[in-house]
Amino acid sequence: MELILEQFPVVIQSLNIGFIQTLKLFFVTLLGAVPLGLIISFGSMSRFRPLSYLTKIIVWIVRGTPLMIQLLIIYYFPGLVLDNPIWGGGESGRFLAASVAFIFNYACYFSEIYRGGIQGVPKGQEEAGLVLGMTRSQIFFRITLLQMIKRIVPPMSNEIITLVKDTSLARIIALQEIIWAGQAFLKGSQGISGAIWPLFFTAVYYLIFNGILTVLLGQLEKKLDYFR
């Protein structure tokens, strides 16, 4: 116990740095995947058949294979197979590759949630907009969108919380996120080795952050309670 107290400041500092990387990946993914998912959902709902088939195949591949494999392929394929290491070396290159993999993967999941949300809005809403002379985009932004958002908040909350934890997969390409930072003390780092508790302690970070997210998303859900 005394030993842990002694190690605590060093470990926390290191875990904080790792967690910042975790948060960065989380927010970048969210920022990229939320709009990209909408574009993909429009693709899969397109009346132009080849586009909707193509989109559905992409979604199938991305959802049907492990994110870990996607990370590895996106990071290593350009350099090892094409002899063109587009990501560059170092932490920034790994972060970029991880961001691309995460954004694409999560956009595909989001797109299916959006599709459900959009298709769940009764057809009569669109028709009412049409007979009132609105354009398709006015109907989407003024009528459908908010009703869709209301519908998708609960399933999106689920995905977002999963995303927080999924960021840990990025250590497969040696991105130095929080679990990577915790694991370092097992192998030996900054004079500490063979310590497993830092790894276990990373769970506290996830738990607290997800707690905050749960409260925020719950508030959003409540805010949209003013209509049905």
Binding site: G124, Q125, A128, L130, V131, G133
Partner: peptide, 20 residues
Amino acid sequence: IRKKRLHFGLVFQSFNLFPQ
């Protein structure tokens, strides 16, 4: 067609009011 629709108004059986 969008302009032509404005010659007509339509009241639906299920109202189709915008809930928000």
